[in-house]
Design a protein around this nucleic acid. Structure first.
Lengths: 116, 116, 116, 116
DNA sequence: GTGGTCTAGACCACG
DNA sequence: GTGGTCTAGACCACC
């Protein structure tokens, strides 16, 4: 598993780690039941503290995306539902509102790009 | 000017103050060149610290929405362009959700562009 | 707020802190909207690390029992539902099952007391 | 002896093994004096480490449920009393929930005693 | 080996 | 002042 972090981002590292794992799920690189790297291992490869990785895993567990068991590692939940990751509805809503105030496609992409 | 803040929101108060002023602009309650309330006055009416209001005004100034001059108070810029921030809140929300599910900037722009 | 921790317990300290706060709620010592002690303050009075208290508060927030805002402290949620803390149903279920296998009141209290 | 483990459970495997043996006792599938499978054999059939099975047997011995003798294997104690552990799981669950809502041992015993 | 908990520091943004 | 994040260590139970 190869993940990249943006140390200059305002987004907390532990959320970035969780984001990256969800991304791998969406891309199909990993799937239900698949093991995640050991905390110490991932911490070393990302050059962050173990606690940061643990917080990421803990958050994934709280959201039902992964499960951790002492001595057995952390793995993607067998019943993980990737469809919940979709944001299509939000995108449609945004576009509707943009149109309602006369914002063009080009402008909206500019605004979104600037805010990301 | 009557503004309301949501103390239960995760959004910082000083940004909420700025948001509210932009909303007044969008609704036409205030317009280019109009004066904003004195910092101390608005702070008292919102029951927040003066520093919070000052930070809000500073942010508006940085975005070219308002201008401050010592002794003259703060007023809406004469050349303010409302189209750019009318959907800021929605864009922010979309980006937060996109990040939380591991969607990158490039991907999101693609999705938005396709759906428009 | 006076809380006591059992350092010899197997129960994690941060859960004990959360337990104690729920207990205060059940006893009516604190109620919806009431502020909780500042993390540093509670950490000092309990002689645990700040992180331990923060984890307790974070857990309460995740369960909708408290809300934290940077710079404004942590307080009991205004819509907290203490009835959800009840365990009467579980107790009744346990007693039914105990009776069904011929366990007497005295025995059950012994078993529960030993397991706590 | 056929036992099943729940790898998704938070309950340690070695306790689950002990639980399953107690359940067999309660169901009458095995009785006082009956031999338990050899450690290596059970470990292989459950696909867990020998250490896990050994820990389970050790725990059963500590609770007076089984006895181990080198070279002779492990067997159910001849004087085992099944009434004591028939509702252990329910008691554990109750205590966990009680702790999570801040109920103390004394309080819980009071509640259980009142409801019986 | 694994994850879970905890500490004692630090720096940051918000008020 | 507040809470949020992060680090670099440590010890523990489980496998």
């Amino acid at each position: 598993m190869i993940l990249t972090l943006d140390l200059d981002s305002d987004r907390p590292l532990f959320l970035q780690v969780g984001d990256a794992i969800k991304q791998s799920l969406l891309r199909g690189e990993i799937g239900p039941g698949d093991p995640l790297p050991a905390g110490r291992e991932l911490a070393a490869s990302l050059d962050v503290s173990l606690e940061t990785v643990q917080r990421a895993y803990r958050q994934l567990a709280e959201h039902g995306i992964a499960t951790s068991r002492v001595g057995r590692g952390t793995r993607i939940a067998s019943d993980v539902d990737t469809t919940s990751f979709s944001i299509e509805a939000e995108v449609r809503q945004l576009i509707d509102q943009a149109r309602s105030v006369g914002i063009e496609k080009k402008q909206l992409l500019q605004i979104v790009g600037d805010a990301f």
